[in-house]
Amino acid sequence: MSGGILLAVLGAALLHGTWNALAKLIPDRLVSSALIGLAYLLLGGLACLVLPLPAAGAVPSLLLSAVLQTAYLILLTAAYAASDFGTAYPLMRGVAVLGVTAVSVLWLGESLAPGQLLAVLLVVVALAVLALRSSRTQTRRGLLLALVVGAVVAAYSLVDGVGVRSAGNALSYAAWLFLLQGVTVPLTCWVLSRDRRAFLAGLRRHARPGMLGGVLSLIAYAVVVWAQSLAPLALVSALRETGVIVAVFAGRLLFREPLTTRGVAASGLVAVGIVLLRTTTA
């Protein structure tokens, strides 16, 4: 993996942790998801106007990924409503790394050097330590939702990793994916909303942080999709999970969650994993 790809994915990880924090700041989970989707619709639509069409072979992946990512956004905000941010975020991302690594190596035939496998394991262990630390508001429902979200993340990461390689243009694939989600996410939230008047009022009240979160999410995932077209899926997936470092400090600064020695040590372990991923070749 080149230095340029490494820095780009680390930047995407920072943006990912930031937009997830913005999503938790909005108290209504459907409003939060819908606003992110509307940002996707606007920016994804504009990008589709200037980018070439993806190859026809990518269409099944686009459609499946749009369904998975719609479910992801709604489940994600539900998990944050039932959990501490610093607990839910590491758990769902750790499950995603484990799932992507296992499937990409065992099913897709990608090979990793022993040092790279060790690096991925270090990242997963660090995220597990962060996720299993004591929490004031963690519930069984929140824990289950976080695990389900992690499984969905692994699923759409694999679908996109395959789809982007058949699209012919990574940014075109990302643009059409966001456009599709920009339609499916707000519509799904509207259907699920029990109080449509309150839902519309929430869209107006929280438009600024919600749309900003959507923009940051779009940029972060576009970078990841581009990186997946050039580097092994397991390595890209592991690197993007360094956004957990943002989650640890965001949980403390924004949500007044405890910042423990264990949390800081686990964040350092993530950094060690990054170094191994960068310096070990397959």
Rank of each mutant, 00 (worst) to 15 (best):
I5K: 00
L6T: 02
A8G: 01
L10N: 03
L10F: 01
G11Y: 00
A12N: 03
H16Y: 11
G17Q: 05
N20C: 02
D28G: 07
R29K: 14
S33Q: 03
S33L: 02
A39P: 12
L42A: 15
L42H: 05
G44T: 09
L51N: 10
L51E: 10
L53A: 14
P54L: 01
A56V: 10
G57C: 09
G57A: 13
A58Y: 09
S61I: 06
S65E: 07
L68F: 15
A71V: 14
L73D: 09
L73R: 14
L76K: 00
Y80F: 02
A82E: 15
F85N: 03
G86K: 06
A88E: 06
L91M: 14
V95L: 12
V95C: 09
V97T: 12
V97F: 10
L98E: 04
L98D: 04
V100N: 08
T101L: 08
V105A: 14
W107E: 03
W107K: 09
W107H: 11
G109L: 14
G109T: 14
E110T: 10
L112C: 09
P114R: 00
G115Q: 04
Q116P: 11
L117S: 09
V125M: 12
V125E: 08
A126P: 01
L127G: 08
A128G: 05
S135D: 05
R136Y: 01
R140M: 06
R141T: 07
A146S: 15
A151L: 15
V152D: 06
S157M: 12
V159C: 10
V159G: 10
D160N: 03
G163Q: 12
V164N: 08
R165S: 06
R165K: 14
S166Q: 12
G168I: 01
G168E: 02
S172E: 07
S172I: 08
Y173I: 07
A174I: 05
A174V: 03
W176N: 08
W176H: 14
L177K: 04
Q181T: 14
T188W: 04
C189G: 10
L192Q: 10
R194H: 15
R197P: 00
L200G: 03
L203T: 11
H206I: 04
G214K: 13
L218P: 02
I219S: 12
Y221M: 11
V223D: 00
W226A: 05
W226C: 01
A227L: 08
Q228W: 08
A231H: 05
P232D: 01
L233T: 13
L235E: 10
L235Y: 05
L235R: 08
T242M: 05
V248D: 05
G251N: 09
L253H: 09
F255W: 07
T261W: 11
R262A: 15
A265W: 11
G268P: 01
L269V: 12
L269P: 02
G273I: 01
G273V: 07
I274E: 00
I274R: 00
T279P: 00
T280A: 14
